[in-house]
């Protein structure tokens, strides 16, 4: 089973789209493939995620966007039967085999999920500092400061400042999602993974989070999965397009600047997709 999987993975090699003019890479993917119980879900992913830019992952349902994203902070580790092949580098360190623990990796690569998932038993404040607490930070002055800065960066501070001790579940969906962003930002991550962070939100909340992302990329590198073409075009600098092959496994079709992907892609399927010509 294993060899078969490796063979499948190595059959095709996509030329990495190197673009030295973009700047240093925060993360590098080299022939990344993920399989579940020997069945390949996504493969052939080779591209660089450039620092202080927003990289979007687009593609139809089932093309492996979520699967790929979750490989980047090793969230597949606990999924029985999941295997990640290829290389994923964070600042040059292989995150699966290199000198880095899962815990450290996840503090450096934060994640925001599709559905807002604040911890229901914790207050707004406790949610914001939960990551620091899990990692052993106890000093109140540090926690207080982290709570304030992260809630401010998530554009939530003004509306929750007076009710930090209130249960997080009292917030609206959009506010909860921003709390989840604050929770991730409190760890001061280098990379922030976002899996359709606005798909459960209304247009106004969506807009707020999009604005936020443009602001955020000054400090962190953002990788975002989105089904919304306008969103990808508006907020991302680079874009990766994934599509299922004949065997239903997702693969990287094209990676380039968002501008090129949307206006002048190399692969005709990319244009078809961004124009909504198939689904």
């Amino acid at each position: 089973m294993d060899q078969e999987f490796m063979a499948q993975v190595e059959t095709k090699v996509v030329a990495p789209t190197e673009s030295p003019e973009r700047g240093a890479a925060a993360m590098q993917l080299k022939g990344v493939a993920v399989s579940f119980h020997g069945r390949v879900a996504v493969r052939d992913c080779t591209f660089d995620v450039t620092k202080n830019r927003v990289t979007s992952l687009i593609g139809p349902s089932g093309s492996g966007k979520t699967t790929l994203l979750r490989a980047l902070n090793r969230l597949h580790d606990l999924t029985p039967g999941a295997k990640v092949a290829g290389q994923i580098l964070l600042e040059g360190t292989d995150i699966y085999r290199g000198d880095i623990t899962v815990t450290e990796l996840r503090t450096r690569v934060g994640m925001v999920f599709q559905r807002p998932n604040p911890f229901p038993t914790m207050s707004i404040y406790e949610n914001a500092v939960s990551g620091l607490r899990f990692n052993g930070v106890k000093k109140k002055s540090i926690l207080d400061e982290a709570a304030e800065t992260s809630l401010k960066s998530a554009a939530l501070w003004d509306s929750v400042q007076s009710r930090l001790k209130v249960a997080a579940s009292n917030l609206s969906g959009g506010e909860q999602q921003r709390l989840c962003i604050a929770r991730a930002l409190a760890m001061d991550p280098e990379v922030l993974l976002m899996d359709e962070p606005t798909s459960a939100l209304d247009p106004i909340a969506t807009l707020k989070i999009e604005e936020l992302m443009t602001e955020l990329k000054k400090r962190v590198t953002v990788i975002i999965v989105t089904h919304n073409m306008q969103q990808a075009a508006r907020i991302s600098d680079d874009c990766a397009f994934l599509l299922m092959g004949e065997d239903r496994a997702g693969e990287l079709i094209e990676f380039d600047t968002t501008e090129k992907i949307f206006n002048n892609p190399i692969d005709p399927r990319t244009l078809d997709y961004t124009l909504g010509r198939f689904g």
Partner: peptide
């Protein structure tokens, strides 16, 4: 999703059990 949220913040599995799952 709550467990994953904890893990994604770099919490060790036993911390996730004690601080997130048990209270919930």
């Amino acid at each position: 999703t709550l467990r994953e949220a904890g893990l994604a913040l770099g919490a060790k599995p036993h911390k996730v059990s004690m601080k997130i799952v048990l209270p919930a």
